[in-house]
């Protein structure tokens, strides 16, 4: 049997390669844009331009990496190369998500370092920003920043797992459809299943917010904890559904 400690590094290798390639492209784009702006606008506003360029290109990279890692996750469910690995479907699923989350964390660290470097180089910009918001920032940062990061990652996993749920439901249904007109029926079903799943997830969060409103909770420790808890419960429910579909219905493409 293959264990997760063997599988996660193998999955990570491919994901790191893809993320590194996109980081290189992002850096190239930042440098190219900065050079062009230096020639067209001169040196007077270069700090503002550079900060803007880094934010813009890292935002694009964020989006592309998010999609790329999602496609890695989905690829695993329907390919013999991965589904033949002697490991349970639950462990295969968890290994894939662990590798994707770590790869995204890696991009997050690189992106933070890049923003830090730019803030250091364009010292004036950084001082202005910090001066304006310093009192709030220094008082709440030690608690707020880790919380925002954790919440951000939970949100990321939630979107990935929702995509997986839609994909796996569709693959499962496709096995029961007649061979003819598959594309048309699948197209319609994709829209219907996507709308239903997204509405169910949104409904769960609405229920939660109603609960918060009626119980009169404000943005304090308890309500934040409940928010975390609600996301985690949805993640567990979606994961259970995904693994069940993998075990019972989802086959690899021939």
């Amino acid at each position: 049997m293959t264990n997760m400690t063997r599988l996660i590094p193998t999955f990570l290798k491919e994901r790191f390669k893809a993320v590194n390639r996109l980081i290189m492209l992002m850096l190239t784009a930042i440098v190219a844009t900065a050079v062009v702006q230096l020639f067209t606008n001169g040196v007077s506003n270069w700090e503002t331009s550079l900060t803007g360029d880094v934010s813009f290109w890292s935002g694009i990279a964020f989006f592309v990496i998010f999609i790329r890692l999602a496609s890695f996750n989905e690829h695993i469910y329907v390919n013999d190369a991965f589904r033949l690995i002697p490991i349970s479907d639950t462990k295969l699923y968890l290994s894939s998500y662990s590798a994707s989350a770590l790869a995204f964390l890696y991009y997050g660290v690189i992106s933070a370092v890049l923003h830090g470097l730019v803030a250091f180089v364009t010292k004036g910009q950084l001082q202005v920003n910090f001066h304006i918001e310093s009192s709030f920032f220094w008082s709440s940062a030690p608690v707020a920043v880790p919380m925002i990061i954790v919440f951000f990652f939970l949100g990321l996993l939630l979107v990935w797992m929702t995509i997986s749920l839609i994909h796996l439901i569709m693959v499962s249904i496709a096995a029961f459809l007649p061979v003819g007109r598959q594309r048309l029926i699948r197209g319609v079903l994709y829209v219907v299943v996507s709308v239903v799943i997204i509405r169910v997830v949104m409904g769960l969060f609405q229920l939660y917010s109603q609960f918060v409103m009626t119980s009169g909770l404000q943005l304090n420790g308890t309500s934040v904890l409940l928010a975390f808890l609600s996301v985690i419960i949805v993640l567990i429910l979606e994961s259970a559904a995904n693994v069940l579909l993998m075990k019972r219905f989802v086959e690899t493409a021939l």
Binding site: M1, N79, D80, A81, L84, P86, I87, A253
Partner: peptide
């Protein structure tokens, strides 16, 4: 299925790569 996968070597088509 997990046990069977560990006991069987199946000639996959390499389509997943």
């Amino acid at each position: 299925p997990a046990d069977r996968k560990s006991l069987v070597s199946y000639s996959q088509s390499l389509g997943g790569f």
